[in-house]
Structures are given as structure tokens and as C-alpha cells.
């Protein structure tokens, strides 16, 4: 049985690398006594697939992995098992049972489904004219920035990779721009920012292209928007929080847990 789990990562756990998180969950499954499917061979390991790694120091309420269980269980039972075995700073927060792969069909995992991500980004010194800057940015046709990749720096269109912009202030959301491609309510946003550490309780919320085809990292977005606003300071004090990861469903981008494949 295939199961997709969404989890959060915050507090001191934000300094755990991707491999440490994977090792952590392998031990969670044992403590939870979940009947995980194991690979064959002398060093069997549980069959697990993690979605996009999170950068060190980022917090998140929207991390994912897919696992396979040997026995049928209800979502409630799986959630209860995980809940008793998780560390409070890396808790699972949503469990979805997925339909089995059709025989011979290409195996789809959380990782390959990803086409978008949303972040809450907070700055110690938020520019005063931030709403205007964001409005103006949204009205641009394109805005080219440099992005460093494995093969050196490359130009990419930051504007084309931004699909929504909001400002979160003291628990109130002001939507600035929305191209309609994402399904994400105000309530989703508040939930998704639950474990973010924000300066002045204020953040910019952004929906960005993510995944293997087009990927705009959150720090590239921030650096781009700051230079667009005429701020040249390198790496000002800030926090990044991933709210959720998205994939395509019926022409919309929806959180991964809503995609049943």
C-alpha cells in the first residue's frame, strides 16, 4: 500500500541535512512499528521516496515522502503510529493513502510530481514600500536574474516563475497578485506558515516554479526582488519557510497530498 506523508521541520531541526532527515524517518518507522516494505538483499532498506530537499536553516510545514507498507492500514492508524514516534520538531502533519501503481505503468513518486512551491520569506528590515514594489513587479512582462547552477550561472526569467504574491502581517493576508494557477486558500496560507519564524510577524508569501523543469529557489527570488526594489545589500538577515509543495492536477497546481498518484 502506497502512502504519502507530509511533515514539518522547524526549531533546531532546521539544521538537519536531507540525509539526516531520511535516517531520522527510518528510525521513526521502527519506533512506530509501521510495517514498511523493504528492499531485497543483504542490506535491506525501507522503500521510501523523499520530495525536494530543503535548504539548511529553512523551516517548513510542507515536506513530503512516499512510503510503501506491507499491510493495509487506515490513514488514522498510520497517523497515530507516526505521531507517537516523531520528534516534536519534525512531526508528520498529513497522511494520504495513494492508489497502487498500475502494473507496468511508470512509477510516479512525490519527487517527480513537483511543479511548484510556496514560501513565506521574512526580513528583519522589510522595505517600507514593499506592497508597491510587489505590485509593480507583478505588472512586469519579464525580469531576468542570474541563477547559479551546477554548470555556472545562467539567466532566467524571475517574473515568469512567480505565480502569486501575498503579504502576511499579524495573521492577516493581503493578496497582491494571483495568476490563478494555484489552489491555495487564505486558511491554507495561515496553516502553511504555522511554524515559520517571522520578524515582526510579517512575511512575503510567494508561489514559485519548482521541480525538475523550471525551478526558482526561494533565495534567488528574494535576491531578485530586492535588487528590483533597488536594495543591494548581500544576504540581509532573513528567514525562509516552505509552506507546501505542489503538483499539477486538472490544469491547476495543488498541494502534493491532493494528488492521488
Amino acid at each position: 500500500m502506497r502512502v504519502r506523508v507530509r511533515f514539518a521541520k522547524f526549531g533546531s531541526a532546521r539544521f538537519l541535512g536531507h540525509l539526516d532527515v531520511m535516517r531520522y524517518f527510518q528510525k521513526v518507522f521502527r519506533r512506530a512499528e509501521l510495517p514498511l516494505m523493504f528492499s531485497e538483499g543483504y542490506h535491506p532498506h525501507p522503500i521510501l521516496s523523499f520530495a525536494q530537499p530543503l535548504s539548511l536553516s529553512y523551516t517548513s510545514d510542507g515536506e513530503y515522502f512516499d512510503m510503501e507498507l506491507r499491510e493495509e492500514m487506515s490513514e488514522e492508524a498510520i497517523a497515530a503510529c507516526l505521531n507517537k514516534a516523531c520528534n516534536p520538531e519534525i512531526p508528520a502533519n498529513r497522511v494520504t493513502i495513494l492508489p497502487d501503481h498500475k502494473p507496468n505503468a511508470k512509477k510516479v513518486t512525490g519527487m517527480s510530481l513537483i511543479t511548484g512551491a510556496s514560501y513565506a520569506i521574512s526580513l528583519r528590515q522589510m522595505p517600507q514600500n514593499l506592497p508597491e514594489v510587489l505590485h509593480k513587479f507583478a505588472s512586469e512582462k519579464s525580469y531576468m536574474v542570474e541563477k547559479s547552477t551546477k554548470n555556472g550561472t545562467r539567466e532566467c526569467d524571475l517574473r515568469a516563475g512567480v505565480h502569486g504574491l501575498s503579504i502576511l502581517k499579524n495573521g492577516v493576508i493581503t493578496r497582491i497578485y494571483d495568476d490563478g494557477s494555484y489552489l491555495f486558500s487564505d486558511e491554507d496560507m495561515l496553516c502553511g506558515a504555522e511554524h515559520a519564524s517571522l520578524y515582526d510577524d510579517t512575511a512575503v508569501i510567494v508561489w514559485l516554479d519548482a521541480g525538475s523543469e523550471r525551478n526558482i529557489p526561494a533565495d534567488v527570488f528574494l535576491q531578485g526582488i530586492l535588487s528590483y526594489a533597488g536594495i543591494t545589500e548581500e544576504k540581509p538577515e532573513r528567514t525562509f519557510h516552505r509552506m507546501d509543495l505542489f503538483g499539477d492536477k486538472d490544469e491547476k497546481k495543488v498541494p502534493l497530498w491532493m494528488i492521488e498518484s
Partner: peptide, 25 residues
Amino acid sequence: MLDIINGKEFDCMRKPFLPDEVLLA
């Protein structure tokens, strides 16, 4: 799908003693 309510007693926002820029360095 199902939401998990995490009801554990724990200071959920343990703050590292070292500032982020040190931890990242």
C-alpha cells in the same frame, strides 16, 4: 487524507544558541 494534531509538550521553537550565520558557516 488526515490531519495529525501534534499535542506534545515541548518547546517547539527551540532556539539555537549560535546565530544562523555561524551555524551556516
